[in-house]
């Protein structure tokens, strides 16, 4: 019987090696043209954009290509003096997502003291709800992504004790589905990006024993398509960012070897743009900074020799976490 699957074809002409120098150039020049329409349209997530670029360059040991001073100054301007949260850009409202990006950048630059760290802790604590979940900002959307952000931020600034961790764990576990996966809320469809958030959350809070690893790993392995690429949900096309989310989750669960690394590598490398550098979501599309980090991050998890080792829970270079003396739980099988 026919087996129908949504996938891509990778032609023999696609790149097979890492275009290292092209990527450095791509990231270093990203955002130089500030009159660019795309730059204006993406302002609302600028802080994360910077985190993606900084982390990618650090994994390539090219961090000096970016101007540290102006980035730190930018972050300082984005912290809200009242709430303590950080916004994506000056003039925007603070949000959990951008607070995490800002803290990650400052950890990489080893200068957390440049912002009001107590304010950050106060902000995160203020967003926890009685059921243990977290709002993304004061307007009240709940999502397991924000649970991950909360414990990641507080661990990086060493203030995990300002929230109710057992309650937070309880909420995340209430989002676990019968297929072993996790969604954004209780009963929401399992989704690889949200699985990463929940597995990462449990890794940070030392609660990995709560996972049903056999079922979850089964679900995650079904993400690999004949092209080698990984999708994020059943019947979706492969996408480089899921290379990161699926692979990082499997790495934390000690089951990286459950998928074919060689085929995945072929897919990720085929998503490089040979002209401009950078990675796209899938073969043949235009590159962006988001997929560039997650392409490089996945290659690092697969042990690429030109990249520094990445930490699967925080998506930051391992040496940064070592310096901060942060241990993240990983299951060894």
């Amino acid at each position: 019987m026919a087996f129908i699957v949504n996938d891509v074809d990778i032609s023999a002409a696609e790149p097979k090696e890492l275009l290292f120098d092209k990527h450095v150039e791509y990231i270093a020049n990203h955002g130089n043209d500030q009159n660019d329409f795309e730059y204006c349209m993406t302002e609302f997530l600028r802080m994360s954009g910077i985190y993606w670029g900084v982390t990618a360059l650090d994994l390539m040991q090219q961090l000096e290509k970016l101007d540290r001073k102006s980035i730190v100054e930018f972050i300082k301007k984005c912290q809200c003096p009242t709430s303590g949260g950080v916004a994506a850009c000056e003039g925007h409202d603070p949000h959990m997502l951008y607070t995490l990006s800002a803290v990650q950048i400052l950890c990489i630059y080893d200068c957390l003291d440049q912002i009001d760290v107590a304010g950050v802790a106060r902000y995160v604590a203020s967003l926890q709800q009685p059921d243990g979940s977290f709002f993304g900002d004061k307007w009240g959307e709940v999502d397991t992504r924000f649970s991950f952000c909360a414990v990641a931020i507080l661990t990086l600034i060493n203030k995990l004790d300002v929230i109710n961790v057992p309650k937070a764990v309880e909420f995340v576990m209430s989002c676990c589905n019968a297929d072993g996966g996790f969604g954004s809320k209780p009963n929401a469809e399992s989704h690889a990006g949200l699985i990463y958030c929940c597995v990462g959350f449990l890794s940070i809070t030392n609660q990995l024993h709560r996972l049903d690893c056999e079922k979850l790993a089964w679900w995650l392995c079904e993400r690999q398509l004949p092209s080698g690429g990984l999708n994020g949900r059943p019947e979706k096309l492969p996408d480089v960012c899921y290379s990161w989310w699926v692979l990082a989750s499997l790495t934390i669960m000690g089951r990286l070897h459950w998928i074919s690394s060689d085929k995945l590598k072929v897919f990720i490398l085929s998503c490089q743009d040979t002209d401009t550098g950078g990675f796209s979501d899938r073969t043949g599309n235009l590159p962006d900074i988001f997929h560039t980090l997650f392409g490089l991050g996945a290659l690092s998890l697969l042990g690429h020799d030109k990249l520094l080792k990445v930490n699967p829970t925080f998506c930051m270079p391992q040496y940064v976490l070592d310096k901060l003396k942060i241990n993240t739980q990983i299951i060894s099988v």
Partner: peptide
């Protein structure tokens, strides 16, 4: 659906969920 359209992940996953 499988008889009509061939094997698909959706048919298989939903059949399993219903069986479970």
């Amino acid at each position: 659906l499988k008889n009509l359209f061939g094997f698909r992940e959706s048919f298989e996953n939903h059949r399993r969920a219903s069986l479970r």
